[in-house]
Structures are given as C-alpha cells and as structure tokens.
C-alpha cells in the first residue's frame, strides 16, 4: 500500500516531465524546423535523419510532436489559470457568505454554466471570434471556472468550521483576510489536485477542438490537428495518426496519475480511507 503511492506519483511525474521537457526544449531547439515543408520527402518512415519519420508535408514528426506538446500544454495551463483566477475567488466568497445571497448567486451561476453543453458553446465561441488557440483557451477556461468555484467553496466550508478560524475571527480579522491568510493555504493542496485534473482535461479538450479544426491554427502544430490532418492516411502511413494519439494519451495519463498520487500524498484523510 505504502509502496503504491509513490509509484503512481513517480510514474505520473515522469511521464509529465518528459512532455514538459520536450515542450520547453522545442522553444530553443527542434531536430528540424517545423515551418519548412519538403513535399518530396513526405510520408517517410522512421530513419536516422527523421527519428519518427515525416508527415504529409515532409515535416519531421518528432519536431512536430515537440512543438505540439508546447501548444497543448500552453493552452491547458492558461485555461486552468483562467479557471482558477475566476473560480477560486468566487468559491472563497461563496464560502465566506455561506447561506447568504452571494453564496446562492454563485452556486446558481455555477449550475447555469454547467447546464450549457460545453462543446457546443466552445464551437459557438470559435464561430463568433474565429478559430484560434486563444479562443480555445477562452472556451476551456470558462468551463473550468465553475469547477474551481465548487471545489474551493466545498474545501473552504470545511475549513471555516475549524477552531483556528474562530480564533482568527475573535482576534478581529476581516472575512477577506481570513479567506486569504487562513482558508486559501489550507485548501491549496485540494486546488493543486483539481488543477492537475483540469490540466489533463484541458489537454483532451484542446485535442478535441483542434481535431474539429477549432483550436490552434496552422502553421502552429497541434496534436489534435495532426491527428485530424493525417487520419485519411492511417491505412498507409499509420504513424502520422498513431503518434499524436499516443502523445495525447501519455500526457493525459501522466497528469492523471500525478493528480491521483498527489491527492493520496497531500490529503492524509483520503489516504486513510483508501
């Protein structure tokens, strides 16, 4: 039992680290330039020159995957950031106002956003503003907000009942100060775990949006679009569709394992229960 916890975390972190490293490395170096097309050298299998072969435009697959990692990770991180930046204050506010009008409003608003079909709204957003990585971020970020608001509120409510909060109240601290100084640090682990999960969902969402052509635009490589662009060639150049698929799976798997590991590791209550 005790041996399993680090293992999940270690495997998850290792997988995540590989892709984060690849994304960071792609900022300064890729084996080949992803902007340069070489139609004559297209659809090549793996070779010493192109470790993972080339795509239908003769671009180096490894380089494409590296830059694609950057796109996916950037979109997902910023979307999680938006969700946190909006959702956490709302959740804290609702918890501080437990049972009050603000609480009710925040929760109703949450239900309302949840009631909208996320994918349809994401498609509408890109129809209004045009498809781009930025609008994909916006769409994913909006739907992250109620998740963080709910988790924050739930966690914060539990902390509010504890004695040291009572002590802080007695010492005359305001609601805002208590929320920031005492509540937030105590729910940080909760938020990190949720953040990891939303991060992995963000990667999947970005892949889905790009797959239908609504995410990052060319020439910027993105895993979802690489998949979409190459799927008609799956029968004679399967690596084009299989590799980005595996990259998505590995990254999401890594993040989910990390999230699970972190939850077990950071939250002693849950550890006991398992």
């Amino acid at each position: 039992m005790t041996a399993r916890l680090p293992l999940t975390l270690v495997v998850g972190l290792a997988l995540t680290a590989v892709f984060v490293a690849a994304a960071l490395l792609s900022l300064v170096w890729t084996p080949h330039a992803v902007e340069s097309l070489n139609i004559a050298a297209r659809l090549q299998p793996a070779s010493a020159e192109h470790l993972l072969g080339t795509d239908h435009f003769g671009r180096d697959m490894l380089s494409m995957l590296m830059v694609g990692a950057r796109t996916s990770i950037a979109v997902a991180i910023v979307a999680v950031g938006i969700g946190m930046a909006l959702g956490v204050p709302l959740g804290l506010l609702a918890a501080a106002n437990h049972g009050g009008v603000i609480d009710d409003l925040v929760m109703r608003g949450n239900d309302l956003v949840f009631a909208f079909p996320a994918l349809v709204i994401a498609i509408l957003i890109t129809a209004v503003f045009g498809p781009s990585a930025f609008n994909a971020i916006l769409a994913i970020g909006i739907f992250n907000t109620p998740v963080f608001a709910r988790v924050t509120r739930g966690g914060a409510l539990a902390v509010w009942t504890q004695e040291f909060i009572l002590a802080a109240r007695v010492s005359g601290k305001g609601v805002v100060r208590i929320s920031l100084e005492h509540i937030l640090p105590n729910i940080a682990s909760l938020l990190i775990v949720q953040g990891t999960i939303q991060f992995s969902l963000g990667i999947l969402a970005e892949a889905g949006l790009s797959y239908v052509g609504l995410g990052a635009q060319p020439p910027l490589p993105s895993w979802g679009r690489m998949l979409a662009d190459s799927q008609t060639m799956i029968s004679f150049a399967p690596h084009l569709a299989v590799l980005p698929g595996l990259a998505i799976i590995a990254t999401v798997l890594g993040l989910n394992l990390t999230g699970d590991g972190l939850r077990d590791h950071l939250d002693p209550r849950l550890r006991r229960r398992r």
Partner: peptide
C-alpha cells in the same frame, strides 16, 4: 485551400513574406 494554404505560407516565407493564416467557414 487548407492544405494549399499551409504550403503557400511556407513558400512565401522562403522569400521573406510572412503570413497569418486564418481558417474560415464558408459563411465567414
């Protein structure tokens, strides 16, 4: 248009012309 656009963007880059690709639906 979509594939040709990516290729033309790369060819224009060769001669020093940058492009901003925007994929549109027919209505747009």
């Amino acid at each position: 248009a979509r594939r040709g656009g990516e290729i033309i963007a790369a060819q224009l880059r060769e001669v020093g012309i940058g492009t901003e690709i925007e994929n549109l639906e027919w209505a747009q």
